[in-house]
Design a protein around this nucleic acid. Structure first.
Lengths: 114, 114
DNA sequence: GCTCTACACCTAGTTATGCTAGGTATGGAA
DNA sequence: TTCCATACCTAGCATAACTAGGTGTAGAGC
């Protein structure tokens, strides 16, 4: 069973990674994350929007309101230079963390990963 | 940088795994985890003891006080049958979770793992 | 015209849990 | 007799994902 707590401390990296390919608005980011994780991370808006605000306030993202011809207002987020650097850091941190858990969990013996 | 939040939701599995090889007391469990994670998880007692109590209350661990000839009292924890089953579940959950993060983080391109 | 769904954003408050900081006590070494 | 490693405990803090509610637009179906 995947609990919400498992995501703690890892969401920022995932959001930043979703913006690496280019700017996007909140709703689209949620979709991207859902698809890239093969449906595993179907994040509620109440999770993603506050995260975006946090990341912008931290200077890792910048945002701009846009009104496409269709009519609906959207807030489009982009990675800042700091954000791109942070993404690299977070990826490294994830690598170290996941490897440590892998070894701490011990002999999986053909369990999960190749 | 590895933040404490990253561990949230994963600690239980790590503690259970540390007891898979056999019963042990709290202090030894901390040492085991430190060694198995190559020093990455140097957990404070205030993290591990409450976790042990939680797991015992949940029926995944059982404990017994022992007084070895040296003199100091120790509380030795063992995996219950439920705990062993739970460990299997947690390992599977970790596998699914970490794989989802791996893909969500996207092209690491020779970054962290083999 | 009216309802319903999908899109698109927001926030106050809850909850879970790892950690900080403090405490108790034994035994051996300096 | 002072200090450190061992060995246990707990109250309270901090963080962050989530719940549950809200606003408003656009298009489809009746």
């Amino acid at each position: 069973m995947l609990t919400p707590e498992m995501l703690k401390g890892h969401l920022d990296a995932i959001v930043l990674a979703a913006l690496e390919a280019g700017p996007a608005h909140g709703y689209a980011i949620i979709e991207t994350i859902k698809q890239r994780s093969a449906g595993t991370f179907d994040l509620p808006e109440g999770t993603v929007y506050p995260a975006l605000h946090r990341l912008e306030q931290a200077g890792l993202l910048s945002s701009a309101w846009t009104t496409p011809p269709s009519g609906r207002k959207r807030r489009v987020y982009s990675l800042t230079r700091t954000g791109t650097a942070a993404l690299g850091e977070r990826r490294k941190a994830w690598g170290r963390f996941s490897q440590a858990v892998d070894t701490a969990l011990g002999p999986v013996l053909g369990g999960g990963r190749a």
